[in-house]
Amino acid sequence: MNPQLLELIAVFGYLSLLTVGGGMAAFPELKTLTVDVHHWVTAQELIHFYSVGQMAPGPNMMMVTAIGERVAGVLGALVVVIAFFMPTGLITFGVGRLWVKLEGWPWRDAIQHGLAPVSVGLILAGSISMAKEVLADGLAIAIAAAVLGLLLRTRINPALLILCGALIGAIAFVCR
C-alpha cells in the first residue's frame, strides 16, 4: 500500500475529531499538517480549494477530496473522505443512540453549554488564520468586508457572492 495513503488516513482521521462547531475549526491544523508538515499542497492551493469548496453543494468540507486527489488520485480522494467522515460519524452514531437516555444526566447540559462558546472560538480562530493568509491587499479586504456586510444584512445566497468575488478578481487582473 502506498505509504502516502496511510498518512492521509492518519491526518484526516485526526482532523475529523477537531471539527467541533464546523469544518473551519480544523482549518489551522489542516494548514499545519497538509502544508507545513506533509507538503501535500501549498498554502495558496489549500486556501483556493477551501474557498471554491464554499460554492460546492452539500457539506462544506468536501474540498478534502481535492487534496486527496492532488496527493494520490481517485484512491487518495476516496481514502480522505472516508478518513475525514468516519471517526465523527461513529461518534455521532453512538452518542445519538445514547442521547435520549442521557436526558436526566446533569452533565449533558454542562457539556452542551460549555462547548458552545469553545466551538464559536474555534470557528473564529480558523477564520482569523484564513484571513491572515488571504487579506494581503486593499482589494481583498474590500471584497471580504463587502461580503461580510451583505451576508449579515441580507439573505443573498453566499455562493453568488463568491462568484462575484471571482468576477472582481478577473476584472482586476484585466485592468492591471
Binding site: 473551519m24 495558496q44 486556501i47 483556493h48 477551501y50 474557498s51 471554491v52 464554499q54 460554492m55 470557528i123 480558523g126 477564520s127 484564513m130 484571513a131 488571504v134 487579506l135 482589494l139 481583498a140 479586504i141 471584497i143 471580504a144 468586508a145 463587502a146 461580503v147 461580510l148 456586510g149 451583505l150 451576508l151 449579515l152 453566499p158 457572492l161 463568491i162 462575484c164 468575488g165 471571482a166 468576477l167 472582481i168 478578481g169 478577473a170 482586476a172 487582473f173
Partner: peptide, 15 residues
C-alpha cells in the same frame, strides 16, 4: 480569479 474567490470566502466564514 482565485484570489477574488478566497477574499469573498473570508467574508463568508466571518459571517
Amino acid at each position: 480569479m482565485f484570489q477574488g474567490i478566497a477574499a469573498a470566502a473570508v467574508g463568508l466564514v466571518l459571517a
